[in-house]
Design a protein around this nucleic acid. Structure first.
Length: 485
RNA sequence: GGCGCAUUCGUCUAGAGGCCUAGGACGCAUCCCUCUCAAGGAUGAGAUCACGGGUUCGAAUCCCGUAUGCGCUACCA
Protein backbone atom coordinates (compact mmCIF):
# COMPACT_ATOMS: atom_id res chain seq x y z
CA UNK A 1 0.00 0.00 0.00
CA UNK A 2 1.23 3.46 -0.87
CA UNK A 3 1.96 5.74 2.03
CA UNK A 4 0.07 9.03 2.00
CA UNK A 5 2.23 11.89 0.79
CA UNK A 6 3.64 13.95 3.61
CA UNK A 7 6.48 16.32 2.80
CA UNK A 8 8.26 18.90 4.86
CA UNK A 9 10.16 22.12 4.54
CA UNK A 10 12.71 22.23 7.33
CA UNK A 11 14.52 25.56 7.39
CA UNK A 12 16.96 26.54 10.06
CA UNK A 13 16.39 30.07 11.31
CA UNK A 14 19.87 31.37 10.65
CA UNK A 15 19.03 34.20 8.30
CA UNK A 16 16.64 35.64 5.79
CA UNK A 17 14.68 33.29 3.56
CA UNK A 18 17.00 32.72 0.62
CA UNK A 19 15.33 32.22 -2.76
CA UNK A 20 17.02 28.85 -3.18
CA UNK A 21 15.66 27.76 0.12
CA UNK A 22 12.20 29.02 -0.69
CA UNK A 23 12.33 27.22 -4.00
CA UNK A 24 12.88 23.99 -2.11
CA UNK A 25 9.88 24.79 0.05
CA UNK A 26 7.89 25.60 -3.05
CA UNK A 27 8.67 22.29 -4.77
CA UNK A 28 7.70 20.40 -1.65
CA UNK A 29 4.48 22.36 -1.47
CA UNK A 30 3.70 21.81 -5.17
CA UNK A 31 4.28 18.11 -4.73
CA UNK A 32 2.02 17.95 -1.69
CA UNK A 33 -0.74 19.90 -3.36
CA UNK A 34 -0.41 17.94 -6.56
CA UNK A 35 -0.75 14.64 -4.79
CA UNK A 36 -3.32 15.68 -2.23
CA UNK A 37 -0.79 15.20 0.55
CA UNK A 38 0.28 17.31 3.50
CA UNK A 39 2.90 20.04 3.58
CA UNK A 40 4.63 20.45 6.91
CA UNK A 41 6.92 23.21 8.11
CA UNK A 42 9.42 22.26 10.77
CA UNK A 43 11.87 24.72 12.24
CA UNK A 44 15.31 23.23 12.72
CA UNK A 45 16.60 25.54 15.41
CA UNK A 46 19.39 23.32 16.65
CA UNK A 47 22.30 25.64 16.05
CA UNK A 48 22.05 27.99 18.98
CA UNK A 49 25.04 30.10 18.01
CA UNK A 50 23.85 30.80 14.49
CA UNK A 51 20.19 31.32 15.25
CA UNK A 52 19.08 34.76 14.17
CA UNK A 53 16.32 36.47 16.05
CA UNK A 54 13.31 36.98 13.83
CA UNK A 55 14.51 34.60 11.16
CA UNK A 56 11.63 32.18 11.66
CA UNK A 57 9.15 35.00 11.22
CA UNK A 58 10.95 36.10 8.05
CA UNK A 59 10.86 32.62 6.60
CA UNK A 60 7.19 32.24 7.36
CA UNK A 61 6.47 35.63 5.87
CA UNK A 62 8.28 34.65 2.69
CA UNK A 63 6.11 31.58 2.38
CA UNK A 64 2.94 33.53 3.01
CA UNK A 65 3.85 36.19 0.50
CA UNK A 66 4.18 33.57 -2.20
CA UNK A 67 0.96 31.95 -1.15
CA UNK A 68 2.54 28.81 0.19
CA UNK A 69 0.41 27.56 3.05
CA UNK A 70 1.24 24.70 5.37
CA UNK A 71 -0.92 22.06 6.94
CA UNK A 72 1.15 21.52 10.04
CA UNK A 73 3.83 23.62 11.64
CA UNK A 74 4.42 26.90 13.42
CA UNK A 75 1.37 29.04 14.16
CA UNK A 76 -0.78 26.07 13.30
CA UNK A 77 0.24 23.05 15.26
CA UNK A 78 -0.74 19.59 14.14
CA UNK A 79 -0.81 16.01 15.33
CA UNK A 80 2.91 15.45 15.06
CA UNK A 81 4.27 18.45 16.92
CA UNK A 82 6.03 20.22 18.36
CA UNK A 83 7.33 21.63 15.10
CA UNK A 84 10.35 23.35 16.58
CA UNK A 85 13.25 21.02 17.16
CA UNK A 86 14.34 22.99 20.20
CA UNK A 87 11.16 21.71 21.81
CA UNK A 88 11.90 18.10 21.02
CA UNK A 89 15.21 17.77 22.81
CA UNK A 90 14.09 14.96 25.15
CA UNK A 91 13.29 12.82 22.15
CA UNK A 92 16.77 13.22 20.70
CA UNK A 93 18.36 12.52 24.08
CA UNK A 94 16.35 9.38 24.52
CA UNK A 95 17.04 8.11 21.03
CA UNK A 96 20.76 8.83 21.08
CA UNK A 97 21.13 7.28 24.54
CA UNK A 98 19.41 4.22 23.22
CA UNK A 99 22.00 3.92 20.47
CA UNK A 100 24.81 4.21 23.03
CA UNK A 101 23.25 1.49 25.14
CA UNK A 102 23.05 -0.77 22.13
CA UNK A 103 26.66 -0.08 21.26
CA UNK A 104 25.79 1.67 18.01
CA UNK A 105 26.98 5.05 19.21
CA UNK A 106 29.43 6.25 21.81
CA UNK A 107 30.43 9.15 23.94
CA UNK A 108 33.42 11.06 22.65
CA UNK A 109 35.49 13.24 24.97
CA UNK A 110 37.81 14.67 22.36
CA UNK A 111 38.38 18.37 22.73
CA UNK A 112 37.85 20.71 19.84
CA UNK A 113 41.59 21.51 20.01
CA UNK A 114 42.48 17.88 19.48
CA UNK A 115 40.02 17.65 16.62
CA UNK A 116 41.47 20.73 14.99
CA UNK A 117 45.01 19.44 15.29
CA UNK A 118 43.98 16.13 13.87
CA UNK A 119 42.34 17.79 10.91
CA UNK A 120 45.34 20.02 10.32
CA UNK A 121 47.60 16.98 10.25
CA UNK A 122 45.32 15.16 7.85
CA UNK A 123 45.17 18.11 5.50
CA UNK A 124 48.93 18.62 5.66
CA UNK A 125 49.49 14.96 4.82
CA UNK A 126 46.86 15.13 2.09
CA UNK A 127 44.91 12.49 3.92
CA UNK A 128 41.11 12.37 3.81
CA UNK A 129 39.80 14.38 6.75
CA UNK A 130 37.53 12.83 9.32
CA UNK A 131 37.34 11.81 12.93
CA UNK A 132 40.02 9.26 13.80
CA UNK A 133 37.64 7.30 16.08
CA UNK A 134 39.84 7.88 19.05
CA UNK A 135 37.01 7.30 21.54
CA UNK A 136 35.10 4.69 19.58
CA UNK A 137 36.03 1.72 21.73
CA UNK A 138 36.88 3.43 25.00
CA UNK A 139 33.45 2.87 26.49
CA UNK A 140 33.36 6.40 27.85
CA UNK A 141 30.34 7.70 29.72
CA UNK A 142 28.49 10.99 29.63
CA UNK A 143 30.50 13.98 30.78
CA UNK A 144 30.43 17.74 30.41
CA UNK A 145 31.71 18.64 26.97
CA UNK A 146 31.17 15.16 25.59
CA UNK A 147 29.34 14.42 22.37
CA UNK A 148 27.69 11.30 21.08
CA UNK A 149 29.07 9.92 17.86
CA UNK A 150 27.64 7.30 15.56
CA UNK A 151 29.61 4.08 15.08
CA UNK A 152 29.80 4.13 11.33
CA UNK A 153 30.35 0.69 9.81
CA UNK A 154 33.95 0.35 8.73
CA UNK A 155 33.21 -1.76 5.70
CA UNK A 156 30.58 -2.24 3.08
CA UNK A 157 28.70 0.36 1.16
CA UNK A 158 25.46 2.28 1.37
CA UNK A 159 23.26 2.90 -1.64
CA UNK A 160 20.25 5.02 -2.20
CA UNK A 161 17.85 5.46 -5.00
CA UNK A 162 17.35 9.14 -5.57
CA UNK A 163 14.15 10.06 -7.38
CA UNK A 164 16.01 12.60 -9.47
CA UNK A 165 19.51 11.18 -9.77
CA UNK A 166 18.97 7.45 -9.73
CA UNK A 167 21.19 5.04 -7.84
CA UNK A 168 24.06 6.49 -5.85
CA UNK A 169 26.50 4.39 -3.86
CA UNK A 170 28.95 5.41 -1.14
CA UNK A 171 31.69 3.34 0.42
CA UNK A 172 31.17 3.27 4.17
CA UNK A 173 34.90 3.58 4.68
CA UNK A 174 34.76 7.15 3.33
CA UNK A 175 32.36 8.18 6.08
CA UNK A 176 33.54 9.02 9.57
CA UNK A 177 31.92 8.70 12.98
CA UNK A 178 29.78 11.79 12.79
CA UNK A 179 28.29 13.56 15.77
CA UNK A 180 24.67 12.88 16.69
CA UNK A 181 24.36 14.92 19.85
CA UNK A 182 26.42 18.01 20.44
CA UNK A 183 27.96 18.91 23.76
CA UNK A 184 25.34 21.60 24.35
CA UNK A 185 22.66 18.94 24.31
CA UNK A 186 21.30 19.86 20.91
CA UNK A 187 21.17 17.27 18.15
CA UNK A 188 22.91 17.64 14.83
CA UNK A 189 20.86 17.82 11.68
CA UNK A 190 21.59 14.18 10.95
CA UNK A 191 20.04 12.90 14.14
CA UNK A 192 17.17 15.32 14.45
CA UNK A 193 15.94 15.23 10.89
CA UNK A 194 15.90 11.44 10.77
CA UNK A 195 13.97 11.11 13.97
CA UNK A 196 11.52 13.85 13.07
CA UNK A 197 10.99 12.72 9.52
CA UNK A 198 10.18 9.31 10.88
CA UNK A 199 7.94 10.49 13.68
CA UNK A 200 6.17 12.96 11.43
CA UNK A 201 5.70 10.18 8.89
CA UNK A 202 7.39 12.06 6.10
CA UNK A 203 7.03 10.11 2.86
CA UNK A 204 9.31 12.11 0.55
CA UNK A 205 12.28 14.28 1.31
CA UNK A 206 12.86 16.88 -1.38
CA UNK A 207 15.90 18.87 -0.36
CA UNK A 208 18.82 20.67 -1.95
CA UNK A 209 21.60 18.70 -3.59
CA UNK A 210 24.15 19.70 -0.96
CA UNK A 211 22.52 17.02 1.19
CA UNK A 212 23.20 14.21 -1.20
CA UNK A 213 26.61 13.50 0.28
CA UNK A 214 25.25 13.05 3.77
CA UNK A 215 22.35 10.87 2.74
CA UNK A 216 24.30 7.64 3.43
CA UNK A 217 24.67 8.79 7.04
CA UNK A 218 20.95 9.27 7.19
CA UNK A 219 20.30 5.89 5.67
CA UNK A 220 22.54 4.27 8.26
CA UNK A 221 20.55 5.92 10.99
CA UNK A 222 17.23 4.83 9.52
CA UNK A 223 18.69 1.40 9.43
CA UNK A 224 19.96 1.20 12.98
CA UNK A 225 16.77 2.68 14.35
CA UNK A 226 14.79 0.27 12.26
CA UNK A 227 12.89 3.04 10.50
CA UNK A 228 11.78 2.89 6.90
CA UNK A 229 13.50 5.68 4.99
CA UNK A 230 11.46 8.09 2.90
CA UNK A 231 11.95 8.58 -0.82
CA UNK A 232 14.75 11.05 -1.42
CA UNK A 233 14.90 13.61 -4.20
CA UNK A 234 17.86 15.96 -4.27
CA UNK A 235 17.07 19.21 -5.99
CA UNK A 236 19.58 21.09 -8.12
CA UNK A 237 21.19 24.08 -6.49
CA UNK A 238 20.54 27.65 -7.59
CA UNK A 239 23.68 29.52 -8.61
CA UNK A 240 24.56 33.18 -9.09
CA UNK A 241 25.64 34.54 -12.46
CA UNK A 242 29.24 33.55 -11.80
CA UNK A 243 28.25 29.93 -11.26
CA UNK A 244 28.94 29.91 -7.56
CA UNK A 245 26.23 29.22 -5.05
CA UNK A 246 23.81 32.13 -4.97
CA UNK A 247 24.71 34.46 -2.14
CA UNK A 248 24.49 38.02 -0.94
CA UNK A 249 27.12 39.35 -3.26
CA UNK A 250 24.96 38.41 -6.22
CA UNK A 251 22.39 40.98 -5.14
CA UNK A 252 19.00 40.20 -3.72
CA UNK A 253 18.80 36.69 -2.37
CA UNK A 254 16.09 37.01 0.22
CA UNK A 255 12.57 36.45 -1.01
CA UNK A 256 11.61 39.38 1.20
CA UNK A 257 13.80 41.71 -0.82
CA UNK A 258 11.89 40.76 -3.93
CA UNK A 259 8.68 41.52 -2.15
CA UNK A 260 10.02 44.93 -1.19
CA UNK A 261 11.19 45.68 -4.69
CA UNK A 262 7.69 45.10 -5.94
CA UNK A 263 7.87 41.78 -7.67
CA UNK A 264 4.54 40.04 -7.99
CA UNK A 265 4.27 36.81 -6.02
CA UNK A 266 2.55 35.07 -8.91
CA UNK A 267 5.43 36.02 -11.21
CA UNK A 268 8.03 34.99 -8.68
CA UNK A 269 6.28 31.68 -8.25
CA UNK A 270 6.21 31.06 -11.98
CA UNK A 271 9.86 31.99 -12.31
CA UNK A 272 10.96 29.85 -9.38
CA UNK A 273 9.05 26.88 -10.74
CA UNK A 274 11.06 27.06 -13.94
CA UNK A 275 14.33 27.05 -12.07
CA UNK A 276 14.87 23.33 -12.13
CA UNK A 277 11.54 22.18 -13.43
CA UNK A 278 9.86 22.29 -16.80
CA UNK A 279 6.78 20.79 -18.36
CA UNK A 280 7.71 20.59 -22.02
CA UNK A 281 9.47 22.45 -24.79
CA UNK A 282 6.91 25.27 -25.03
CA UNK A 283 5.07 26.13 -21.84
CA UNK A 284 6.54 28.91 -19.76
CA UNK A 285 3.64 30.70 -18.20
CA UNK A 286 1.85 28.87 -15.44
CA UNK A 287 -0.72 29.95 -12.94
CA UNK A 288 -0.43 28.51 -9.49
CA UNK A 289 -3.19 26.01 -10.22
CA UNK A 290 -1.53 24.91 -13.41
CA UNK A 291 1.72 24.35 -11.58
CA UNK A 292 0.01 22.23 -8.98
CA UNK A 293 -1.75 20.28 -11.65
CA UNK A 294 1.35 19.62 -13.72
CA UNK A 295 4.10 19.33 -11.16
CA UNK A 296 6.00 16.09 -10.90
CA UNK A 297 9.32 15.01 -9.46
CA UNK A 298 10.18 13.21 -12.68
CA UNK A 299 10.36 16.52 -14.50
CA UNK A 300 12.79 18.14 -12.09
CA UNK A 301 16.14 18.75 -13.74
CA UNK A 302 19.43 17.36 -12.49
CA UNK A 303 21.56 20.38 -13.24
CA UNK A 304 21.99 23.45 -11.14
CA UNK A 305 20.55 26.62 -12.59
CA UNK A 306 21.74 30.19 -12.65
CA UNK A 307 19.28 32.70 -11.27
CA UNK A 308 18.61 34.86 -14.31
CA UNK A 309 17.41 38.26 -13.19
CA UNK A 310 16.70 39.41 -16.74
CA UNK A 311 14.19 36.70 -17.21
CA UNK A 312 12.59 37.37 -13.86
CA UNK A 313 12.20 41.02 -14.80
CA UNK A 314 10.68 40.12 -18.11
CA UNK A 315 8.27 37.73 -16.49
CA UNK A 316 7.35 40.19 -13.79
CA UNK A 317 6.66 42.85 -16.39
CA UNK A 318 4.47 40.40 -18.21
CA UNK A 319 2.43 39.64 -15.12
CA UNK A 320 2.20 43.33 -14.35
CA UNK A 321 0.78 44.08 -17.76
CA UNK A 322 -1.74 41.31 -17.33
CA UNK A 323 -3.08 42.97 -14.20
CA UNK A 324 -6.42 44.73 -14.67
CA UNK A 325 -5.99 48.52 -14.40
CA UNK A 326 -7.79 48.70 -11.07
CA UNK A 327 -5.79 45.83 -9.66
CA UNK A 328 -2.58 47.47 -10.80
CA UNK A 329 -3.53 50.69 -9.02
CA UNK A 330 -4.50 48.77 -5.93
CA UNK A 331 -1.14 47.02 -5.76
CA UNK A 332 0.95 50.01 -6.78
CA UNK A 333 -0.43 52.59 -4.36
CA UNK A 334 1.35 51.19 -1.28
CA UNK A 335 4.64 51.41 -3.15
CA UNK A 336 3.90 54.98 -4.14
CA UNK A 337 3.04 55.90 -0.58
CA UNK A 338 6.18 54.31 0.71
CA UNK A 339 8.73 55.27 -1.90
CA UNK A 340 7.81 58.70 -3.18
CA UNK A 341 10.08 61.40 -1.75
CA UNK A 342 9.12 62.71 1.68
CA UNK A 343 8.34 66.11 0.16
CA UNK A 344 5.27 64.70 -1.56
CA UNK A 345 2.29 65.20 0.71
CA UNK A 346 0.47 62.16 2.03
CA UNK A 347 -1.95 60.58 1.75
CA UNK A 348 -1.76 60.76 -1.99
CA UNK A 349 -4.68 62.06 -3.99
CA UNK A 350 -6.14 58.79 -5.20
CA UNK A 351 -8.03 60.34 -8.10
CA UNK A 352 -4.81 61.83 -9.39
CA UNK A 353 -2.90 58.58 -8.83
CA UNK A 354 -5.54 56.74 -10.80
CA UNK A 355 -4.84 59.01 -13.75
CA UNK A 356 -1.05 58.73 -13.50
CA UNK A 357 -0.69 54.99 -13.10
CA UNK A 358 -2.29 53.83 -16.36
CA UNK A 359 0.33 55.90 -18.13
CA UNK A 360 3.17 53.84 -16.68
CA UNK A 361 1.44 50.50 -16.38
CA UNK A 362 3.05 48.85 -19.39
CA UNK A 363 6.34 50.62 -18.87
CA UNK A 364 7.13 49.25 -15.50
CA UNK A 365 8.84 45.98 -14.57
CA UNK A 366 8.23 46.03 -10.83
CA UNK A 367 5.77 47.77 -8.54
CA UNK A 368 8.67 49.55 -6.91
CA UNK A 369 9.55 51.30 -10.16
CA UNK A 370 6.18 52.97 -10.07
CA UNK A 371 7.67 55.51 -7.67
CA UNK A 372 10.91 56.03 -9.51
CA UNK A 373 12.07 59.51 -10.37
CA UNK A 374 12.51 58.59 -14.03
CA UNK A 375 9.04 57.25 -14.42
CA UNK A 376 6.64 59.19 -12.27
CA UNK A 377 8.67 61.66 -10.23
CA UNK A 378 7.59 64.65 -12.28
CA UNK A 379 3.96 63.85 -11.66
CA UNK A 380 4.31 64.24 -7.95
CA UNK A 381 7.01 66.79 -7.23
CA UNK A 382 6.54 70.53 -7.73
CA UNK A 383 10.04 71.29 -8.88
CA UNK A 384 11.60 69.42 -11.75
CA UNK A 385 15.28 69.63 -12.31
CA UNK A 386 17.04 69.05 -15.60
CA UNK A 387 20.01 70.20 -17.62
CA UNK A 388 19.36 72.95 -20.12
CA UNK A 389 21.03 70.88 -22.82
CA UNK A 390 18.18 68.44 -22.58
CA UNK A 391 15.79 71.17 -23.58
CA UNK A 392 17.57 72.22 -26.74
CA UNK A 393 16.98 69.96 -29.71
CA UNK A 394 20.23 69.15 -31.47
CA UNK A 395 19.01 70.71 -34.67
CA UNK A 396 17.49 73.82 -33.17
CA UNK A 397 18.95 77.13 -32.12
CA UNK A 398 18.57 78.33 -28.58
CA UNK A 399 16.61 81.23 -29.94
CA UNK A 400 14.28 78.98 -31.84
CA UNK A 401 13.64 76.85 -28.78
CA UNK A 402 12.65 79.89 -26.83
CA UNK A 403 10.36 80.97 -29.63
CA UNK A 404 8.74 77.54 -29.71
CA UNK A 405 8.12 77.53 -26.01
CA UNK A 406 6.72 81.03 -26.03
CA UNK A 407 4.38 80.31 -28.89
CA UNK A 408 3.27 77.04 -27.32
CA UNK A 409 2.69 78.74 -24.02
CA UNK A 410 0.55 81.35 -25.66
CA UNK A 411 -1.56 78.87 -27.59
CA UNK A 412 -1.87 76.52 -24.65
CA UNK A 413 -3.16 79.27 -22.36
CA UNK A 414 -5.95 79.91 -24.80
CA UNK A 415 -7.05 76.31 -24.62
CA UNK A 416 -10.21 75.82 -22.59
CA UNK A 417 -10.40 72.05 -22.76
CA UNK A 418 -6.97 70.73 -21.81
CA UNK A 419 -7.27 67.11 -22.85
CA UNK A 420 -5.39 64.71 -25.11
CA UNK A 421 -7.54 65.29 -28.17
CA UNK A 422 -7.49 69.06 -27.85
CA UNK A 423 -3.74 69.10 -27.26
CA UNK A 424 -3.06 66.97 -30.27
CA UNK A 425 -5.35 69.09 -32.44
CA UNK A 426 -3.49 72.18 -31.34
CA UNK A 427 0.10 71.05 -31.26
CA UNK A 428 0.43 68.93 -34.38
CA UNK A 429 -0.41 71.78 -36.77
CA UNK A 430 1.66 74.13 -34.68
CA UNK A 431 4.83 72.33 -35.61
CA UNK A 432 4.05 72.88 -39.27
CA UNK A 433 3.29 76.52 -38.72
CA UNK A 434 6.64 77.00 -37.06
CA UNK A 435 8.47 75.10 -39.72
CA UNK A 436 9.74 72.33 -37.51
CA UNK A 437 9.04 68.63 -37.25
CA UNK A 438 6.35 67.44 -34.90
CA UNK A 439 8.91 65.36 -33.09
CA UNK A 440 11.04 68.43 -32.39
CA UNK A 441 8.15 70.34 -30.95
CA UNK A 442 7.02 67.42 -28.85
CA UNK A 443 10.40 66.64 -27.44
CA UNK A 444 11.02 70.25 -26.52
CA UNK A 445 7.70 70.41 -24.76
CA UNK A 446 8.28 67.03 -23.17
CA UNK A 447 11.46 68.21 -21.57
CA UNK A 448 9.94 71.48 -20.46
CA UNK A 449 6.98 69.78 -18.88
CA UNK A 450 8.63 66.69 -17.40
CA UNK A 451 12.36 67.34 -17.34
CA UNK A 452 12.87 64.03 -19.10
CA UNK A 453 13.49 62.87 -22.63
CA UNK A 454 11.52 59.65 -22.29
CA UNK A 455 8.04 59.66 -20.83
CA UNK A 456 4.59 58.32 -21.54
CA UNK A 457 2.88 59.95 -24.54
CA UNK A 458 3.09 63.72 -24.34
CA UNK A 459 -0.54 64.72 -24.68
CA UNK A 460 -1.77 62.25 -22.13
CA UNK A 461 0.98 63.26 -19.79
CA UNK A 462 0.09 66.91 -20.18
CA UNK A 463 -3.57 66.22 -19.63
CA UNK A 464 -2.84 64.47 -16.37
CA UNK A 465 -0.45 67.17 -15.23
CA UNK A 466 -3.07 69.78 -16.01
CA UNK A 467 -2.99 73.14 -17.68
CA UNK A 468 -1.63 75.13 -14.77
CA UNK A 469 1.34 72.88 -14.12
CA UNK A 470 2.21 72.61 -17.80
CA UNK A 471 2.12 76.36 -18.34
CA UNK A 472 4.12 77.00 -15.22
CA UNK A 473 6.82 74.56 -16.29
CA UNK A 474 6.96 75.93 -19.83
CA UNK A 475 7.44 79.40 -18.38
CA UNK A 476 10.17 78.08 -16.14
CA UNK A 477 11.88 76.58 -19.17
CA UNK A 478 11.74 79.92 -20.95
CA UNK A 479 13.20 81.59 -17.90
CA UNK A 480 15.93 79.01 -17.87
CA UNK A 481 16.92 79.94 -21.40
CA UNK A 482 16.78 83.62 -20.63
CA UNK A 483 19.01 83.12 -17.64
CA UNK A 484 21.67 81.80 -19.89
CA UNK A 485 21.64 84.75 -22.28
C1' G B 1 43.60 15.34 -0.89
C1' G B 2 39.02 11.99 -0.58
C1' C B 3 33.88 11.10 -1.89
C1' G B 4 29.61 12.41 -4.70
C1' C B 5 26.70 14.93 -8.50
C1' A B 6 26.55 17.34 -13.05
C1' U B 7 27.98 18.89 -18.31
C1' U B 8 22.58 20.86 -25.00
C1' C B 9 22.86 28.53 -27.74
C1' G B 10 25.52 34.02 -22.93
C1' U B 11 21.15 32.29 -19.50
C1' C B 12 16.63 28.97 -18.34
C1' U B 13 15.51 24.69 -20.89
C1' A B 14 13.03 20.67 -24.75
C1' G B 15 15.23 16.19 -26.06
C1' A B 16 14.55 9.06 -22.80
C1' G B 17 18.57 5.54 -30.44
C1' G B 18 16.22 7.36 -36.30
C1' C B 19 10.73 12.85 -35.94
C1' C B 20 17.37 16.94 -34.58
C1' U B 21 20.36 20.15 -41.12
C1' A B 22 18.88 20.21 -32.22
C1' G B 23 12.91 23.10 -30.70
C1' G B 24 11.08 27.08 -27.20
C1' A B 25 11.96 31.30 -23.82
C1' C B 26 15.04 35.47 -21.74
C1' G B 27 18.78 38.57 -23.44
C1' C B 28 21.00 40.64 -28.03
C1' A B 29 20.66 42.72 -33.30
C1' U B 30 17.73 44.58 -37.40
C1' C B 31 13.11 46.14 -39.27
C1' C B 32 7.78 47.59 -38.68
C1' C B 33 4.46 50.53 -35.58
C1' U B 34 5.47 55.45 -33.44
C1' C B 35 5.86 62.41 -30.60
C1' U B 36 10.20 59.95 -26.97
C1' C B 37 10.28 55.53 -23.89
C1' A B 38 7.82 51.25 -23.36
C1' A B 39 4.50 47.61 -25.12
C1' G B 40 3.36 44.90 -29.57
C1' G B 41 4.61 42.56 -34.44
C1' A B 42 8.36 40.50 -37.86
C1' U B 43 13.13 38.74 -38.98
C1' G B 44 18.00 37.28 -37.58
C1' A B 45 22.64 36.04 -35.21
C1' G B 46 23.68 32.46 -31.47
C1' A B 47 24.92 25.12 -29.49
C1' U B 48 30.25 20.93 -34.47
C1' C B 49 24.83 18.70 -27.92
C1' A B 50 32.45 19.52 -22.79
C1' C B 51 36.35 16.33 -25.07
C1' G B 52 38.14 11.32 -26.56
C1' G B 53 37.01 6.41 -27.33
C1' G B 54 33.52 2.56 -27.90
C1' U B 55 28.33 -0.11 -28.68
C1' U B 56 24.88 0.29 -32.99
C1' C B 57 22.89 0.09 -39.77
C1' G B 58 22.18 4.79 -36.92
C1' A B 59 23.94 8.48 -30.57
C1' A B 60 22.71 14.88 -27.87
C1' U B 61 20.35 10.32 -26.28
C1' C B 62 23.61 3.82 -24.13
C1' C B 63 28.84 2.36 -22.03
C1' C B 64 33.99 3.69 -20.60
C1' G B 65 37.78 7.30 -19.87
C1' U B 66 39.41 12.43 -19.52
C1' A B 67 38.50 17.50 -18.53
C1' U B 68 35.79 21.18 -16.27
C1' G B 69 32.14 23.00 -12.82
C1' C B 70 29.58 22.41 -8.38
C1' G B 71 28.55 20.11 -3.62
C1' C B 72 30.10 17.48 0.79
C1' U B 73 34.38 16.41 3.64
C1' A B 74 32.21 20.93 11.28
C1' C B 75 30.07 19.66 18.27
C1' C B 76 26.49 24.35 10.46
C1' A B 77 22.35 23.20 8.42
Amino acid sequence: MLKPVRVRYAPSPTGLPHVGNIRTAFFNWLFARHSGGKFIVRIEDTDVARTVHGATEGILQGLKWLGIDWDEGPEKGGDFGPYFQSQRLEIYWRMSAQLVERGQAYYCHCSSERLEQMRAMQTANKQPTGYDRHCRDLGLGAAPGAVIRFKTPLEGSTSLHDAIRGDVTFENSTLDDFVLLKSDGYPTYHLASIIDDHMMQISHVLRAEEWLSSTPKHLMLYNTFGFTPPIFAHLPIILGNDRSKLSKRHGAVSILEYEEQGYLPEAMMNFLALLGWSLDDKSELFSCDELIQNFSIERISQTSAIFNNDKLNWMNGLYMRKLAPDEFVHRAVPFLEKRLPPGVSRPLNLDYVKKVLPLVHERVKTLGEVASRELTGFFFTDEIDYALSLLIDKHLELQKTQEILETASEKLSALTLFDTAALEALLRPLADEMGIKAGQLFSTLRTAVTGLSATPPLFQTMEVLGKAVCLKRIDQAIAKIKDLC
